[in-house]
Design a protein around this nucleic acid. Structure first.
Length: 319
DNA sequence: AACCAGGATCGAG
DNA sequence: CTCGATCCTGGTT
């Protein structure tokens, strides 16, 4: 049992989307069941705050892949009742800190909608993971994150890789000569026609890439703009800004406990880079950024949480 | 090696 | 004067 459930933040880059030998089977099914059927993904207790259509569809499935063991509430019999046995809303999501499995963090004081808050944190984390994995895959395959830009060769690479990751029957031939644009325009039905066995799953994964890359775009241009508001922005404001958009920045910085204002910087270099861009300070790095954060200690704006962890800070006056 | 704490200095506003 | 950038020393993980 120890083999599964990898430490999330310490996963080797080679892992990519899902450990082939642990959760591959179930994860695959979930990916198909969760992401492929966007019509009936009403599992979310509260409507997502963002307009992104596809994203919420694969939170569930992805969450499953990441936590093959702890997802009993969504577990379906292998191959059994896939369509009927639709998972209930998660009553209580497992604590989702990357490390610190033992003490970890106390989620929510209790009382109000625990599911919503936990769900939010799950979402921001999962989105971060998804984007990270896609980023890794892009580097590995030397393709862009946006499938629309893929050449026929890129499409083949992606197919090969996805087939390999998810143990799908090889279907490259069926999609030969197709560019990214055509691929993205294809319906799930058309995918199935070309590949009766794994077509629906492929389509589901392409969907994930599509929605992930659109959120990437919004990240790209919002990092330039929004400084045009005028007066100089404060670091703490900037950090809250990033935290407000987990879809865009969730892989860089995210809430560990929004109610308490506890957040974690997941990618210190990237956060520093964004801050440098915003302030037009190309030499910015995390060393300097963190020094500025430390200046907030005495001003009572940010502090270290009670249980001090690396890269984890806390707003003194959370909203 | 990366993170953390905090003193010192400097420039912009 | 405030705020943040930069640099630095020294400690911790």
């Amino acid at each position: 049992m120890g083999s599964a459930s990898p430490g999330l933040s310490s996963v080797p880059p080679g892992r990519l989307l899902l450990p082939p030998d642990t959760a591959s089977r179930t994860g695959l099914e979930k990916a198909a069941a969760g992401a492929a059927g966007p019509e009936r993904r009403d599992w979310s207790p509260s409507p997502p705050a963002t307009p992104e259509q596809g994203l919420s569809a694969f939170y569930l499935s992805y969450f499953d892949m990441l936590y093959p063991e702890d997802s009993s509430w969504a577990a379906k019999g292998p191959g059994a009742s896939t369509r009927e046995g639709r998972p209930e809303e998660p009553e209580q999501c497992p604590v989702i800190d990357s490390q610190a499995p033992g003490g970890s963090l106390d989620l929510v004081p209790g009382g109000l909608s625990l599911e919503e808050h936990s769900l939010e944190q799950v979402q921001s984390m999962v989105v971060g993971e998804v984007l990270k994995d896609i980023e890794t895959a892009c580097k590995l395959l030397n393709i862009t994150a946006d499938p629309v830009d893929w050449s026929p060769g890129n499409v083949q690479k992606w197919l090969l890789w996805t087939e390999h990751q998810y143990r799908l029957p090889p279907v490259g031939k069926a999609f030969q000569e197709l560019g990214g644009k055509e691929l993205c325009a294809m319906s799930e039905e058309q995918f199935r026609q070309r590949s009766p066995l794994g077509g629906d799953v492929l389509h589901a994964h392409l969907d994930i890439w599509k929605s992930a890359s659109t959120s990437e775009d919004s990240w790209a241009d919002s990092e330039v703009d929004s400084s045009c508001s005028g007066q100089p922005i404060h670091l703490w404001q900037f950090l809250k800004e990033l935290l407000l958009k987990p879809h865009s920045y969730g892989r860089f910085i995210r809430w560990l406990n929004k109610e308490k204002g506890i957040f974690k910087i997941e990618d210190s270099a990237q956060v520093a880079r964004l801050w440098g861009i915003r302030k037009n300070r190309p030499a910015m790095n995390y060393d300097k950024l963190s020094r500025s954060i430390r200046q907030y200690y005495k001003k009572g704006i940010i502090r270290k949480p009670d249980i001090s962890q690396r890269l984890v800070y806390q707003f003194v006056h959370p909203i």
